[in-house]
Amino acid sequence: MTQDSARVERAALETEREANPALALLSTSVGRNAGLVVALLLICVVGAVSAGDRFTSSDNALTILRLAAGVGVVSIGMTFVIIGGGIDLSVGAIVALASVWSTTVATQQMVEDTHWIAMVGVALLVGAGCGLVNGLVIAYGNVVAFITTLAMLASARGLAEIISDKKTQIIPRHGFAEFFNGDLLGVSVQIWLFALVAAVGWILLNRTTFGRRTVAVGGNPEAARLAGINVKRHTVYLYVLIGVCSGIAALMLVARTTTGSSTHGTLWELDAIAAVVIGGTLLTGGRGTIVGTVLGVLIFSTLTNIFILNNRSFSEQSLFKGAIIVAAVLLQQRLASRSNT
């Protein structure tokens, strides 16, 4: 069934390509990603021209990547959820909750008694737990994802405030911070983690049944169900996956700041969704790429970096960011309507 629709789509694309080669190329995923690479390169040229060596130095490149890493990991999870036809507004709040839970006195005691890996376990479990609740309510409670995760956004941050008593929880600088905030082969572990999560995400999406099912569920849930996919169970998996990603991002933030706080990860959900959307993933589901998301994240963090280097205000940057998102979505809609005709 899905193979059929894929064949139809491919045929449609082929006719398209004959009609207008440039536009047709843009509507394939490889072409779209090439477009993003060009956009990123253009931004880099602006950076190099306006800030010179200060932009092009390797230290600065690492700074950009470190900034991208946290939101990047969340965005990989977001790519799966959005391809699967959902949305998750609660990731920032889950990051806050996981950061708080993994830095409580009790957890730190556990770390002292055993190993700092306990902290990792706690954060991942909290993330997975929140994701599981989201997934169950959406799949089996038939509540719209937007509402469910909005509720989780409020309650996870509320719970984080209750647990931390709204205070910033400071952890001692033991092995955990040294590892997660350290360097490996001259590159920050945070960047390695982002690369690792992106690589695993790519394999999962492109080379496994899980990935194909995600595309099928997002593209046409009814067809996917008829094709024998357990759509409800798969939806739950997707939200657990993004929960785990949020847990990893929380660990990275805890290591960078040596703190857990209920204010961590504020508005990360919007950054992640924005990166996924400009990365070419359809908000309606069924199509998207990991490479596009990574490029989307890099475009935003490079932009932030250039604004800092050039002494420009954050407000101008927000304005610019908004314009980029609208432009990306408009382009996407045009391409979508072309491939539908």
């Binding site: 700074t63 946290g70 933030l253 960078r256 706080s261 932030t304 205000s313």
Partner: peptide
């Protein structure tokens, strides 16, 4: 003066300070 004002996201503020160190 190099001003990198205006963020309530600690990850971004850390990045700003990193840029100052690089500079």
């Amino acid at each position: 003066l190099r001003v990198a004002e205006g963020t309530n996201d600690v990850a971004v503020q850390i990045s700003q300070v990193e840029t100052f160190i690089n500079d």
